[in-house]
Design a protein around this nucleic acid. Structure first.
Length: 884
RNA sequence: GCGGACGUGGCGAAACCGGUAGACGCAAAAGACUUAAAAUCUUUCGGAGCUAGCUCCGUGCGGGUUCGAGCCCCGCCGUCCGCACCA
């Protein structure tokens, strides 16, 4: 009996050294084998890794190790998303420099990741805050500028008053900054933008081809892009009656069919017409001021009533010059969508209906639902928005909605006013250009110089990188670059006159929008990518990360891929062929008698079920067990990966992370679960050593499959081989579908069945017996399927089995599919859909034989109670159902 | 409000294309080993009827389709996520 314990700490250090010494995970760009690129979203170097990282990287590592064993040249790199505000916050609090803080964190976290035993090619490591990285990003910014993909616009921006910076729309969540949580204010600033909207359509269409992405993510991106088809319509105004002599008002509508149901027009408070009208109407100016104040908070929007102010301006209906519609300024109209103006058709739009009821405007139905008498059809408190037949609409009457839309568009396109059509079909998107300007220090400088005479002058490519100055202070809020005495001063590259550097830095989402491409050739110091290499190694075959990046990062990266193609840095449709979004790591929360959060480390748990109680370790004071929530610093429900690795080993942590919960769902971290994983480590170690000892730890002269797998005469030996190959087939299938929890179940099953056979086997098992050989083959398979999950233990077991190679560099075993086909199968037999018996019958038995066999069973006859079968349904290899 | 996902034992979950519901793990209970504990091993473990065998009930609720429904359809209830005045 083998009794030695497996010492994880020692073994893990050992195998990590061996892997490192052998360069086991380096991937050459010249490798002729097919490539497989596995990537996990790179971490922000916040200080220490957390369990979410462990889960993310454990999943990626299983895929990487599996693909390597399958003969792929696996690209599996790691880097650091290293620019960002926390470094500056830390600098302010601790009087350190953001760079020092960041690089310290990277060193700590790199060491932590190495202790996880990840099969990473560390030679490819990059940090986005390094000039050797952002230099290329600046180069691409200039390329994009040349290619017309950069815009500089004055725009209303989301201003974060705590972080003193601008946020992209995507970074505003419920009206608050995504990082600071501060209520966002609106400010007008001149900003740098990347023209992601140029690709709105392409980004939308591209989603259809991403069939290895979660449908959920594709849907979220689709909604974010927000394509709509409609008509821009010009409504004539009386120039004499309008504030600045305007002759028309342009509105955008997706419902041109309802034009005859119009009862008002409305413009946004910021609309030029509203502003002009306010200039001569103080009450309107007050109204607009009220709207603006409310506009900043989403909470206010939710409760705000639909209000409007009648400007007194009247617009002519496009199909009837004598029909005049009032023009309101309304608080619910957005300036930056469509034209900032609408026509309201209350009967068929809920928002318009609410407004019309409040203002006492007419509600005329123009679409009648199918099967309803148009005479009696009226709209009450609910607008009718579905399809129907047109009514009260002159030449449209009787048409279905789609046809009426088309008819209105056709007619208005044909009418020319001042040489321009009165209506124009238009496609609108909710997607806005990507504002990348940040008034921060710790980011990639935008390589542009402002010259009084030459205007905006790009930094010459030869002068890149524009590096961040090191002598900065964070004593005051705002951007330290702005007040830097020398860095900002620079001669104009064109005229040589004194000029000033751009002090905005780029949004950190720019850094992460192309790092996957940089990983393909980080050794190219001259250019962002080596296009030939990038094209060969991309796309990323499997990308793994959190759902929180479903829109921001993934959309930006898709845009960047298109922009980089335009300027020649790669030639690729989509950056990430396969995407997987994993769930969070969650943990119980604990609160002390004073209501303060208590960390799991300080808690002792007693009892189980309803009797389960928690006490404070130090004093024994009762602790309230709270809901299970995402691990977070604020709730103290954090378990530090280092402690787990120290106490149990990295393999145990990885194994537990991937067992139980499906990877896309949240996993609950429990001490019991970890202990269960740790027990399995020992159990596997004992089992493998016992199996190894069957042949005295030496590889048998004839390998287990030497006789030809499946040809063992001994039925017990054959059973062992079948179990191993069945598990192998299932693990393989489930790794490919990223169903790691199922893989682990299959491994448990194999390990359990080998243990059971071993326990029942008659002693002694001769070293050359069929059973010993079968066990040896099964042990090899068991260890090789475990290795991607618990790589250190895998190596140790592989060695114990007498192999001199590394498990990490051993080919994935070949499953013998014919072996697992049973000659005799057990078919469940139902009577009237209820299972009554099992029929043991040959695999190839024909339908008649199966029917006869089923009817012959005692329990079937008993269930028939003398009745005769009306019908017998036989689903081959599945089931038999006897119907009476 | 709009869109989407989900709902299965004490718990995490499995169940492929409509075919034996609960694999695997955790917790629990009993037993073996031990002076004892831990570890390990064995057994039990959805509910009810009397233990065995067996029977009935059981996948949020109510209907339906089907030889057969956790899975498909209709109507509810609940939970979670995303978007949110987008004309």
């Amino acid at each position: 009996m083998f009794t030695d314990r497996y010492h994880a700490g020692e073994a893990e250090r050992h195998w990590q050294k061996v892997w490192e010494a052998q360069g086991a995970f380096t991937a050459s760009n010249d490798d002729p084998r097919p490539k497989y690129y596995v990537l996990e979203m790179f971490p922000y170097p916040s200080g220490r890794i957390h369990m979410g990282h462990v889960r993310n990287y454990a999943m990626g590592d299983v895929v990487a190790r599996y693909r390597r064993a399958k003969g792929f040249n696996v690209i599996h790199p790691m880097g650091w998303d290293a620019f960002g505000m926390p470094a500056e916050n830390a600098a302010m609090q601790n009087r350190t420099h953001p760079a020092a803080w960041t690089y310290d964190n990277i060193a700590t976290m790199r060491a932590q990741l190495k202790r996880m035993g990840l099969s990473l090619d560390w030679r490819r490591e990059i940090a986005t805050c390094d000039p050797s990285y952002y230099k290329h990003q600046q180069r691409m910014f200039l390329d994009f500028l040349d290619a017309g993909l950069v815009a500089r616009k004055k725009s209303k921006v989301n201003w974060d008053p705590v972080d003193h910076t601008v946020l992209a729309n995507e970074q505003v969540i419920d009206g608050r900054g995504w990082r600071s949580g501060a209520l966002v204010e609106q400010r007008e600033l001149t900003q740098w933008f990347l023209k992601i909207t140029d690709y709105a359509e392409d980004l939308l269409i591209g989603l259809d081809r991403l069939d290895k992405w979660p449908e959920k993510v594709r849907l979220m991106q689709r909604n974010w892009i927000g394509r709509s088809e409609g008509l821009a319509v010009r409504f004539a105004l009386d120039p004499a009656a309008s504030p600045a002599g305007e002759t028309e008002l342009r509105v955008y509508t997706t419902r041109p069919d309802t034009l005859f149901g119009a009862s008002f027009l409305a413009v946004a408070p910021d609309h030029p017409l509203a502003v002009a009208a306010a200039a001569r109407d103080p009450a309107l100016a007050d109204f607009i001021e009220d709207c603006r104040r409310l506009g900043t908070s989403v909470a206010a929007l939710e409760t705000a009533e639909k209000t409007g102010y009648d400007t007194g301006i009247r617009a002519a209906h496009p199909f009837d010059p004598n029909w005049h519609l009032p023009v309101y300024v309304a608080n619910f109209i957005l300036m930056d969508y469509g034209t900032g103006a609408i026509f309201g058709c209350p009967a068929h739009d809920q928002r318009d209906l609410d407004f019309a009821r409040a203002k006492g405007l007419p509600v005329v139905p123009v679409v009648c639902p199918a099967g309803v008498d148009p005479e009696g059809f009226a709209v009450g408190e609910e607008a009718f928005t579905d399809d129907g037949r047109m009514i009260n609409s002159r030449f449209l009457d009787g048409m279905p909605v789609a046809q009426a839309k088309d008819e209105v568009a056709r007619r208005l396109e044909a009418v020319l006013i001042g040489g321009q059509p009165q209506g124009r079909r238009q496609i609108n998107y909710k997607l806005r250009d990507w504002g990348i300007s940040r008034q921060r220090y710790w980011g990639c400088p935008i390589p542009v110089i402002h010259c009084a005479s030459c205007g905006l002058v790009p930094v010459p490519r030869a002068d890149l990188p524009v590096t961040l100055p090191e002598d900065v202070s964070f004593e005051e809020p705002g951007n330290p670059l702005d007040r830097h005495p020398t860095w900002t001063r620079v001669p104009c590259p064109q005229c040589g006159a004194a000029a000033r550097r751009e002090t905005d830095t780029m949004d950190t989402f720019v850094d992460s929008s192309w790092y996957f491409a940089r990983f393909t050739d980080p050794w190219n110091t001259e250019e962002p990518t080596t296009p030939e290499v990038a094209d060969r190694l991309l796309a990323v075959d499997q990308y793994i990360g959190g759902i929180e990046h479903a829109i921001l990062h993934l959309l930006y990266s898709r845009f960047f891929t298109r922009a980089m193609r335009k300027v020649g840095w790669l030639d690729l449709d989509e950056p990430f062929a396969g995407l997987f979004t994993q769930g969070m790591v969650v943990h119980e929360t604990y609160r002390g008698p004073d209501g303060a959060w208590v960390s799991p480390e300080e808690v002792r748990l007693e009892g189980s079920g309803a009797e389960r109680r928690a006490r404070l370790l130090s004093t024994g004071a009762p602790i309230e067990i709270g809901p299970i929530e995402k691990m977070s610093k604020s709730k103290l429900n954090i378990v530090d990966p280092d402690d787990i690795i120290e106490g149990y080993g990295a393999d145990t942590a990885r194994w537990f992370m991937l067992s139980d919960s499906p990877p896309e769902r949240d996993v609950i971290w429990t001490e019991e679960g970890v202990q269960g994983a740790a027990k399995f480590v020992q159990r596997l170690w004992r089992l493998v050593n016992e199996l190894a000892s069957l042949t005295d730890g030496n590889l048998p002269a004839e390998r287990g499959d030497g006789k030809g797998a499946g040809e063992a005469d001994d039925p017990v030996a054959l059973g062992v081989l079948k179990a191993a190959h069945r598990a192998l087939i299932r693990v393989e299938e489930d790794i490919e579908r990223l169903r790691f929890n199922r893989c682990i179940a299959h491994i448990y099953e194999l390990s359990n069945s080998l243990s059971a056979v071993l326990a029942e086997a008659e002693e002694p098992i001769g070293p050359d017996s069929a059973l010993a050989l079968a066990f040896r083959q099964a042990a090899d398979i068991l260890v090789l399927v475990v290795a991607p999950f618990m790589p250190h233990l895998g190596e140790a077991c592989w060695q114990a089995l007498g192999h001199e190679t590394l498990a990490s560099s051993t080919a994935w075993p070949r499953a013998n599919r014919s072996l697992v086909l049973e000659d005799v199968i057990i078919l469940p037999v139902q009577v009237n859909g209820r299972k009554r018996a099992d029929l043991t019958i040959g695999r190839d038995a024909d339908v008649e034989a199966i029917k006869a066999g089923a009817l012959a069973l005692d329990s079937v006859q008993r269930a028939l109670e003398g009745r005769s079968a009306k019908k017998i349904i036989v689903v081959p290899s599945r089931i038999v159902n006897v119907v009476v």
